[in-house]
Computed example of a mutant assay.
Amino acid sequence: MSHNFVFISGEQITSPLRVFFLCGSFYNKKNKTDIDKRIVLRDYIESIDSSYKCIILEDHFCFRKDKNLLNYNDINLKSLKDIELMTCLISDKILILHESFSTSTELGLFSADPSLARNILLLVPEYYSVEEDFISGFINLAFDNTYFKEYNIEKIIYYPQVKPISFSDHRMKYHTSFVNNEVPVRLKGILKDKLKGKRRKIAIKPNIGGLRKIYDNGVYFKVMEQKVNITSSPKVLYDLLFAMLNINSVIIGLRKCKNIFEVINYLKAQLNYILLNTMKYEGGYVCSSEIEYSIRGNIKYNDLVSYFVYVIIALGFITLPNQESKQLLVSMELKEIVLNYKSIIKEIDIKSNDLLEVLD
């Protein structure tokens, strides 16, 4: 008797992985005295719940050759703007420690998309602490407007300790850090409340009547003569990729991959296969094997899966083969996390269409 796997529409993901993108000004992970605020924030946030994970791009990725960092060029990601936007699209919240021109740029870039703007938490140092108002001029009018509140971004004031840095006799800059390298008690309470998530449901259904808005938790497919068009968002497709890792045979195949390119191609092929199965057994559609993806943010399918692989490497969920281990390693933490996605994938008996559990 042969079996196949399908994604199940309408089932809840009990406790999905919650990803938080931490943005800020110059990142210094070597300073052990005044530890970078993003590192302190990350350590606190990840201590709240085992399903909370933070991404600091500079901690894991780069554009240059570095044996300790993943190189964007290896997967043809050339634009920092595109990388940051993709990170936003897979994140549940975007925390911007706003103290510089670079974070002003990030704020403007991310807030252009209304659904991303809703996920931004803007952390701003109190005015008298740094003797400077970082929310002024255009930013004030655009995102902190008394009259047009629907466009405003949530602002959280915190009180840092300040150390002056002299560049010359006429120029000085303030370096801020958290007092005693700890998130302040008041800020802890605010973040603990703001970072809470909800259970998610994924709808998988035909795209009837043209292209559908893709801001919800949906996978919409349209069957054409020579191919299938799938419309979705990065976050939803990441949920499906995590769900797929419940399948023992997929994990066995993953362990056989020798490098990052084999991992990317393998996961792409497996996701395509299960989505085609889903269309066939959920809706009776017999589909071509060619899939065309329309992914929110105009993201290419290959880039999406490539970045997924980078993220699970950065979070320590998998380790590529190296001199110490000739086989790809899958962490116990990943195995525990993907169990939360078990509800949206089932094994189906091709002959009877009966649904079976993925795991014993």
Results as ranks from 00 to 15, higher is better:
3 H>E: 14
6 V>S: 04
13 I>S: 01
25 S>E: 00
28 N>P: 06
35 I>R: 14
40 V>Q: 06
47 S>I: 00
51 S>V: 13
55 I>C: 09
65 K>F: 15
66 D>R: 02
67 K>R: 14
71 N>A: 11
72 Y>I: 02
78 K>C: 14
78 K>Y: 15
81 K>G: 01
84 E>D: 12
90 I>K: 08
98 H>V: 10
99 E>P: 07
110 F>C: 05
111 S>A: 07
114 P>E: 01
114 P>R: 00
122 L>A: 05
127 Y>M: 09
127 Y>R: 15
129 S>G: 03
130 V>L: 04
131 E>N: 14
134 F>N: 03
146 T>A: 14
150 E>H: 03
159 Y>D: 13
167 F>L: 09
178 F>A: 04
180 N>A: 09
180 N>F: 09
181 N>Q: 08
182 E>T: 03
185 V>N: 13
186 R>C: 10
187 L>Y: 02
189 G>I: 00
193 D>G: 07
196 K>L: 05
197 G>P: 03
204 I>C: 13
205 K>Y: 13
213 K>A: 10
217 N>G: 05
222 K>V: 11
224 M>A: 12
224 M>E: 14
227 K>D: 06
229 N>R: 15
231 T>S: 11
232 S>F: 10
233 S>R: 03
244 M>Y: 05
245 L>E: 13
247 I>R: 13
250 V>I: 06
251 I>M: 13
254 L>P: 08
258 K>E: 11
258 K>T: 13
259 N>E: 01
261 F>L: 08
264 I>T: 10
266 Y>D: 11
267 L>C: 04
271 L>D: 03
272 N>L: 03
272 N>G: 02
278 T>K: 12
279 M>V: 11
282 E>T: 15
282 E>Y: 12
285 Y>K: 14
285 Y>T: 08
288 S>W: 02
290 E>W: 10
292 E>Q: 09
296 R>G: 08
296 R>T: 07
296 R>L: 13
297 G>V: 02
300 K>E: 15
304 L>D: 05
308 F>G: 03
321 P>W: 12
321 P>N: 06
321 P>G: 06
324 E>I: 15
326 K>V: 11
333 E>S: 05
333 E>K: 11
344 I>L: 01
345 I>L: 12
349 D>K: 07
356 L>R: 09
